[in-house]
Computed example of a mutant assay.
Amino acid sequence: MEPQVSFLTFATADLDAARAFYVAGLGWAPLLDVPGEIVFFQVAPGQVLGFFDAEKFAADAGGAVPPAVSGVTLSHNLGSRADVDSTVALLESVGGAVVRPPSESAFGGIYNAHVRDPNGVVWEIAHNRSWSVAADGTVSLG
């Protein structure tokens, strides 16, 4: 199997809160939005982030309603420390909860913060001077 993730889909107990945070708050345009069911956003070439009503997610997966998101972060890497500060402020202004404010990471050379969206998804907002992406999409972690 080729190493690729096409969809990241999270069950959400409050689809309207997810929509408000990402669409009204951040200005993201949905790729597909089915009220009461699911909303998808294209977040990279060939990659989609989705929020699926928890009960419908469970029915689709053939099981019980899943627990809240835990032990996962989505990372958004930026070009500068100032970009981290302003992005964290934006996320907080549209309903995100700052879990850890912008600061130097214990992992050398990374300036980052963690912000939880209204559905419990934690975003790491970071400036990592060793992070780069080549023209062909290959990632280098330095």
Rank of each mutant, 00 (worst) to 15 (best):
V94M: 01
A17V: 07
G96D: 01
G63K: 01
I38G: 02
A59M: 00
F21Y: 05
R116C: 13
S130F: 09
S70D: 12
G50H: 13
A54G: 11
F41C: 07
F10R: 11
V34N: 04
A24F: 06
P3R: 03
F51Y: 14
A54I: 08
W28D: 00
T87G: 09
E124H: 04
P45M: 14
V72L: 08
G109K: 01
Y22E: 04
N112D: 12
W131H: 07
M1H: 07
A44T: 06
L91H: 00
W123S: 15
L141I: 02
N128Q: 05
G36Q: 02
A113L: 08
K56I: 00
V34F: 08
Y22W: 01
D85S: 06
V34L: 08
G108A: 15
F51S: 15
V65T: 06
A20D: 11
V84P: 02
V72C: 14
R100Q: 15
G36Y: 04
L26Y: 04
A97L: 06
N119V: 14
F7T: 12
A135Q: 11
A11L: 10
A106Y: 12
S103P: 14
A89W: 07
A113Y: 09
A59E: 00
S75I: 08
D14V: 10
V88M: 10
K56H: 01
A54N: 01
T73W: 10
F57C: 09
L31N: 15
S86E: 11
R100T: 15
V121Q: 08
S132F: 00
I110M: 08
S140C: 00
A135K: 03
L74M: 12
G25V: 03
D83E: 10
S103L: 14
A11D: 14
A64Y: 01
A20V: 03
V122E: 15
I110R: 04
F52L: 14
D117K: 03
G95F: 00
A134W: 05
V99Y: 15
R100K: 15
R116L: 12
G46T: 06
N112K: 07
G108K: 13
